[in-house]
Design a protein around this nucleic acid. Structure first.
Length: 665
RNA sequence: GCCGGGUUAGCUCAGCUGGUAGAGCAUCUGAUUUGUAAUCAGGAGGUCGUCGGUUCGAGUCCGACACCCGGCACCA
């Protein structure tokens, strides 16, 4: 007999081989029906998997939403695969997990990749499979038998996978339905007891795409079908609504609507900032400059183009050449038409990073240990020739400006500097409206430079710096380590912002680098009179202006706080008799340093209110006859239905206070 | 770079199986002087992404290229 402990503290004695489903049935028919899976000693398992030892058992129902969702999504993926093979015989199955909001499955199509036009038929077939309520039965197979089976069915990807699963691990197969011809997939499980547990109205196939087998560019391109899956139609509808809301916040759409910037094919991947959008940039840059000044950074400006030899020395030519824009250094051809290289093989390259140039500044003159730390900042404009498919609005571009800085430190200063950086970054994010962000430590990658001892030390330094910093407990609680994600020369701290609708974006970063100072022979004179290598901290808070502004746009959905808003106030007249007065109000607003416009058009006030509201102008100052006579304005704030009638000077001083950047309040 | 989809007026989009283009908004003109999310009327505006092909005839069919979108890969 086995002793099975239940969550209520009771212990049941059951025979060896009893299943959680049977225990659920013994407890009650309601539970038996609601049970989706079991947690056995904390491990999620199939309801029908026999118990083999004393254990704690918790039955998983829809109330355990995280588990239930994950099980359902995984099952949707299987149902998708079965549906596709029913409709498209000859399609090979490969791999199909659950995701954050649904699931996908990768197929090796027989002749052509799937398109969105295939999806409705596949959805219908999925609903038929769910309606058939096929039991999902777990089986353990011998490796050779399984490989043979997959080969016999022409499932070469599954056969490859089966052959490579680690020895000693049970090879499990799930049978959908009963009998010899039931559909099979190799899968670690667990699964719901049957497809009928899925809500046929709670999923939707959303898109198709390509995906490399095992995520490797060198492998075959598979055809992936994505879906979103939930426990109920209501949840699905809520999710679809969220997606619609997110689409309305898309920075590309708002950028167009608010006339912030545009992109065009003649300058692929580079942003044309319009006057409105560049206000955001200027405010952000001025703010960062004040912050950096206060934090003892010295600002520099370095060349856009440098000789290829310099990039060879820094190591970029070897490691980063593919992503660099290389420019021939040409002179007129004295012996004929056109131009020729100025010297043999003379090439220049646009900088993809600012770090080498900063080291070159560091190397001018002799540096003493007393000079360190040296904090060198640059709003550096970089060019990287990103793969075409990577470009995305203003978030991923080929020309961008980083709020970059390099801090040259002695070993004994390193942790303190990283800590100082974390605190500066925290203050900036809070000022900019992002209270909620995550810190991640990217650890040594497989291919790396330097000894294990160096990595042990470098990783521990960053870990310590975060732990010792004054970041809030909430932020520290979310700290996470990412094995294998570090740069080849150093571990890095990554700072991920969460926007208003829950998406996260990596923006800030800091990494300690002992390689580049060495390659470029940077040194300082130590207390002992000998030359020493400084450690170089590469760091950014916003990351790039382009991406950060994109995030700000989406975070605020274009409704910027007053200090950032491109147009802060519009004076709108009700009748043309108020035009003169509106002009006076406008002049006062501008004299107070506010970005203001007037709208004297011959239109109804309803029309003007609607138009400026849609343009997301934060403050609308309406003036009619009454206001003109009384020296007042009717202030209507964006998003509010009510207006407040105030004396002009009072309205202006309120707006002015609110328009003060957060660091100057 | 790879897979799939797309590109029609300033913007958002319609245009069935080929017969040389249409709406709303914006713009312009006129009327209207208006009190908090669209006043009315009229006009103008497009070599349908580029190049090539099929055809008596191409926005529509075929091919190449460019760019965009969704993913994948990439992201010092």
């Amino acid at each position: 007999m086995l002793k099975i402990s239940l969550p209520d503290g009771s212990v049941r004695e059951v025979a060896l081989g009893t299943t959680p489903a049977e225990i659920a049935a013994a407890i009650g028919p309601g539970l038996a029906k609601a049970a989706l899976a079991a947690r056995v000693d904390g491990e999620l398992r199939d309801l029908t998997r026999p118990l083999e030892a004393d254990a704690t058992l918790a039955l998983v129902t829809a109330k355990d939403e995280a588990d239930a969702l994950d099980l359902a999504r995984h099952d949707f993926a299987h149902v998708l695969a079965e549906a596709v093979q029913n409709l498209h015989p000859g399609t090979q199955i490969t791999f199909g997990p659950s995701t954050d909001d649904g699931f996908y499955y990768d197929f090796a199509p027989k002749d052509r990749a799937f398109t969105e036009e295939d999806l409705p038929a596949i959805e219908a077939e999925m609903r038929r499979i769910i309606a058939r309520d096929e039991p999902l039965i777990r089986e353990e197979w011998e490796r050779e038998a399984l490989i043979a089976r997959w080969r016999a069915e022409g499932e070469t990807f599954k056969a490859e996978w089966a052959a490579e699963l680690p020895a000693g691990e049970a090879l499990t197969v799930y049978r959908a339905g009963r009998g010899e011809d039931a559909w099979l997939d190799m899968c670690r499980g667990p699964h719901l007891p049957s497809t009928g547990k899925l809500d046929p109205q709670a999923f939707k196939l959303t898109r198709v795409s390509g995906a490399y087998w095992r995520g490797d560019q060198k492998n075959a391109m598979l055809s992936r079908i994505y879906g979103t899956g939930w426990l109920s139609k209501k949840q699905l509808d809520q999710h679809l609504t969220r997606l619609e809301e997110a689409a309305k916040r898309d920075h590309r759409r708002i950028g167009q609507e608010m006339d912030l910037f545009h992109l065009q094919s003649e300058a692929q991947g580079s942003v044309f900032w319009h006057p409105n959008g560049f206000v955001l940039w200027r405010q952000l840059e001025a703010y960062m400059r004040r912050r950096l000044d206060a934090a003892d950074y010295a600002e520099v400006k370095t060349p856009q183009l440098m000789d290829a030899r310099q990039w060879e020395q820094s190591g970029h030519w070897g490691k980063y050449r593919e992503n660099m824009f290389v420019v021939p250094d040409e002179v007129p051809n004295t012996e004929g038409e056109g131009a020729v290289l100025s010297g043999e093989g003379d090439l220049m390259a646009l900088k993809p990073m600012n770090c080498p140039a900063h080291v070159l500044i560091f190397k001018q003159g002799i540096k003493s240990y007393r000079d360190l730390p040296i904090r060198m900042a640059e709003f550096g404009c970089c060019h990287r020739n990103e793969p075409h498919g990577a470009l995305h609005g203003i978030m991923r571009v080929r020309q961008f400006t980083q709020d970059d800085a390099h801090i040259f430190v002695r070993e004994d200063q390193l942790i303190g500097e990283v800590q100082r950086f974390c605190e500066l970054l925290d203050a900036v994010y809070r000022d900019l409206g992002f209270e909620d962000y995550a810190v991640k430590l990217a650890l040594r990658p497989e291919k790396r430079f330097g000894s294990d001892a160096m990595w042990d030390m470098a990783e521990e330094e960053l870990r310590q710096a975060v732990a010792q910093s004054s970041l809030s407990d909430a932020i520290k609680a979310k700290f996470e380590e990412l094995p294998g994600e570090g740069a080849f020369y150093a571990p890095k701290l990554e700072f991920h912002l969460t926007d208003a609708i829950g998406r996260t974006w990596q923006v800030g970063t800091i990494q300690s680098d002992r390689v580049l100072p060495d390659r470029l022979d940077a040194s300082y004179v130590g207390e002992d009179g000998n030359r020493h290598r400084p450690v170089m901290l590469h760091r950014a808070i916003l990351g790039t202006f382009e991406r950060f502004i994109g995030i700000l746009i989406e975070h605020h959905a274009g409704r910027f706080p007053l200090w950032l808003a491109p147009v802060q106030a519009v004076v709108a007249t009700i009748v043309s008799d108020a035009d003169g007065y509106a002009g006076e109000v406008l002049a006062k607003l501008r004299a107070a340093g506010l970005r203001a416009e007037s709208d004297l058009r011959n239109e109804k006030i309803n029309y003007k209110v609607r138009e400026h509201s849609l343009a997301k102008v934060p403050a609308l100052l309406v003036v009619g006859k009454r206001e003109a006579e009384e020296g007042k304005v009717a202030v209507r704030r964006l998003g509010e239905k009510e207006q407040q009638v105030l004396p002009v000077d009072e309205a202006i001083s309120l707006l002015r206070a609110e328009a003060t950047p957060p660091d100057l309040r």
